[in-house]
């Protein structure tokens, strides 16, 4: 898949103080850097998403560093506590420095 696509699933509305689940998935080949081109014998350069973070109204609530053993099209789920209505911003960054972003609105009642 040439074009990287990110998907996010989070509830539209939650009660204040409630802990809710966020699911994310991004299409990425996650080239580990350990594979060889079968024809030329040369190493295929590493190209993975090396970090992922989620900000909630501008404040970081989840962050992780990823390594070459992570499979292609990585899935990540985590939990966040509802504080105020606002926005969840998601950001993935790969070895080329490219950033992939996605956001979701959340209403806290």
């Amino acid at each position: 898949m040439a074009k990287v696509k990110a998907r996010v699933k989070s509830p539209k509305s939650v009660k204040k103080g409630e802990v809710f689940q966020v699911k994310t998935l991004i299409s990425h080949k996650m080239e580990s850097g350990r594979r060889k081109n079968k024809k030329t014998g040369e190493n295929i350069p590493r190209m993975i998403i090396n970090s992922f973070a989620c900000n909630y109204n501008g404040k970081e609530v989840f962050a992780s560093d990823w390594h070459p053993a992570v499979s292609a099209n990585p899935y990540m789920a985590f939990h966040v506590r509802a504080v105020d209505s606002g926005t969840l911003d998601f950001m993935w960054k790969d070895d080329s420095g490219k950033e992939y972003k996605k956001s979701a609105k959340i209403a806290v009642t």
Partner: peptide, 11 residues
Amino acid sequence: FENPAQIWVDQ
């Protein structure tokens, strides 16, 4: 959601 095949289906 977790099924990565859905990326291709979405497209």
